[in-house]
Design a protein around this nucleic acid. Structure first.
Length: 282
DNA sequence: TCATCACCTGGAGA
DNA sequence: ATCTCCAGGTGAT
């Protein structure tokens, strides 16, 4: 649908969606599940070791319509103007799931370090175009990992979450193929049954890997954004922590206001506010 | 139903 | 040098 030439790789990689990426000279090398991906800005080129890039940048979305739709809000329109090449990424679900479980009460740099440690210890080394690096561990491997090995990856209190979450996938209790097919609410409820996954993490997984574009992760930053620009539009936004029930109500208001592509709006707003505060990325 | 609080870890600032 | 505080939250009282 969209032209790949309009994608800004650096902006997109540095928007908090993905962590296992490094810039080497002028290209970005990253891990997505069992694949290694190499990205070049100009001339634009995206190569995957699996030979199947699988719409990594969601090229199948009708971007023009989506951007037009969410631009009815002036703040969002401004955010898009600021980062026109920003895109949502369609990630490997298991990697995305573990990544955001690891994100709780942590920083981007720390999350990246935890995930790199997991790859080094449990991943399979793969060679692609002169680069050799370990890909993301499979669920069955992490499900059988010892707590000692997981703790050595510096996961802290998340070690137990990662193990149980991996077991849920390995046993089939969590089935990403199925979750992609179901509706947003059903997918969310299913994910939230897993230890270490609450509303925010579930929304990240749903938006970044399960094609749920109405997912709108509400974290500290999003909450700040809503308070700063949208206080008068939403009844359920306060500076207090967003409780379980408030989260659901707030999300309803958000989808009503931003529409079915609320997740896209969130991504532009998040990028805008983090950049405004000069927060570091990868 | 909701408010507090602890939690691994690494980095920044006092 | 040492301490405190905080970072894409979540789970247990």
């Amino acid at each position: 649908m969209q032209k790949t030439s309009t994608i800004n790789i650096e902006t997109t990689i540095n928007s908090g969606q993905v962590f296992l990426w490094n810039k080497i000279e002028d290209q970005w090398i990253g891990v997505d599940g069992q694949d290694i991906i190499i990205l070049n800005q100009s001339p634009f080129c995206a190569r995957s070791s699996s030979n199947n890039i699988n719409n990594f940048f969601r090229e199948d979305d009708n971007l023009k319509e989506i951007l037009l739709n969410i631009s009815s809000d002036k703040i969002v329109a401004g955010a898009i103007k600021q980062s026109p090449g920003l895109r949502l990424i369609r990630q490997d679900p298991f990697q995305c799931y573990i990544s955001f479980i690891c994100s709780s009460n942590s920083s981007i740099q720390n999350i990246k370090s935890m995930l790199e440690n997991l790859c080094k210890k449990f991943g399979t080394r793969q060679e692609f175009n002169g680069y050799e690096l370990p890909t993301f561990p499979k669920a069955e491997i992490l499900a059988k990992a010892s707590m000692k090995d997981l703790t050595e990856c510096r996961l802290g209190f998340r070690a137990k979450y990662v193990k149980e979450a991996s077991q849920a996938v390995d046993s089939g209790k969590i089935d990403f193929v199925q979750l992609k097919k179901t509706d947003y609410q059903t997918a969310l409820e299913s994910l939230k049954n897993v230890l270490g996954i609450g509303n925010k993490v579930a929304d990240c997984i749903a938006l970044f890997s399960l094609d749920k574009m109405e997912a709108f992760p509400i974290d500290r930053w999003t909450q700040r954004i809503l308070l700063k620009y949208y206080k008068k539009f939403f009844d359920n936004i306060t500076e207090k922590p967003v409780t379980e029930k408030k989260y659901g109500k707030l999300h309803e208001e958000i989808v009503e206001y931003f529409g079915p592509y609320a997740g896209y709006a969130q991504q532009f707003l998040f990028k805008m506010e983090r950049d405004l505060n000069e927060k570091k990325w990868l």
